[in-house]
Nucleic acid binder design. Structure first.
Lengths: 132, 132
DNA sequence: TTCACTGCAAATCATTTGCAAGGCC
DNA sequence: GGCCTTGCAAATGATTTGCAGTGAA
């Protein structure tokens, strides 16, 4: 699906900047921060401003067109992947990887609560950072 | 266990300020932010400074005496509870509740990865915020 | 044309840090 | 006494916002 169609599908008004941001996310499934998206676009000769990237990502998140990952202190990472999956963060190098969830854990939600989203964050060591 | 013993057990040097912070966390299992801890202590006539509360919580986390919850954008919440449990956040009022995990989900960790911590965050609606 | 969106710079907010003074071992 | 911790205030870094100009419908 094109970025343009993606915006349409999520009922978000089209602008060149939004298309650029969505395209970047689609081509870089690396859970980037807003600043990483900004710097990535700059390298590709985009003229978007940093504020617009931040605002655009916030808009996309509000429309559930991207999900926000709270996986690292101090920054918000964004993910345009639609399939539910868990995230792995290496405690040494900070690398973030996708992880397939085999089965859902069952939770004892107290009476009256309802869930709409469950996220899993696994912290550990990636292959390069294993203790010898 | 007293706050003093708790510090000792985690090999953290004792100071009055650290004792106050730990005591606060033990008596307020509400996943407070650093600022909430600071304001709570102020109400109890403590003389700790804001920076010390931030630094103390960071120290406690580094010694694994408290866990940091990345459950809300922009702030770090702290939890002194030792039992593994999931966290629920109401998407409307922001309330955070503990949730019992019945069974662990199984994950397909790619070859070579190792996990040391898994956290679950459930976002949804609490009883007071259910749609009618 | 109209109204939402962008760009810039300034503002904000949580958190961290430098440094001098104080307290624990 | 030596060293670690505190307190204050200033610094930092991510994110947001005000406002005027621009572009999409």
């Amino acid at each position: 699906m094109s970025a343009r169609e993606y915006l349409q599908q999520h009922k978000i008004q089209y602008t060149i900047e939004r298309e650029e941001v969505v395209t970047y996310l689609m081509e870089n499934l690396t859970h980037p921060t807003a600043d990483e998206v900004y710097r990535g676009l700059k390298l590709m000769d985009s003229s978007v401003s940093r504020a617009t990237v931040f605002n655009t990502l916030k808009t996309l998140a509000e429309h559930h067109a991207v999900s926000t990952l709270l996986i690292e202190e101090g920054v918000i990472r964004y993910d345009i992947s639609t399939k539910p999956h868990a995230h792995f963060r290496c405690s040494r190098c900070g690398r973030i990887a996708d992880v397939v969830v085999n089965s859902n854990a069952s939770f004892c939600l107290p009476e009256g609560y309802s869930a709409c989203n469950i996220s899993y964050v696994i912290v550990g060591r990636c292959p390069e950072c294993q203790e010898k």
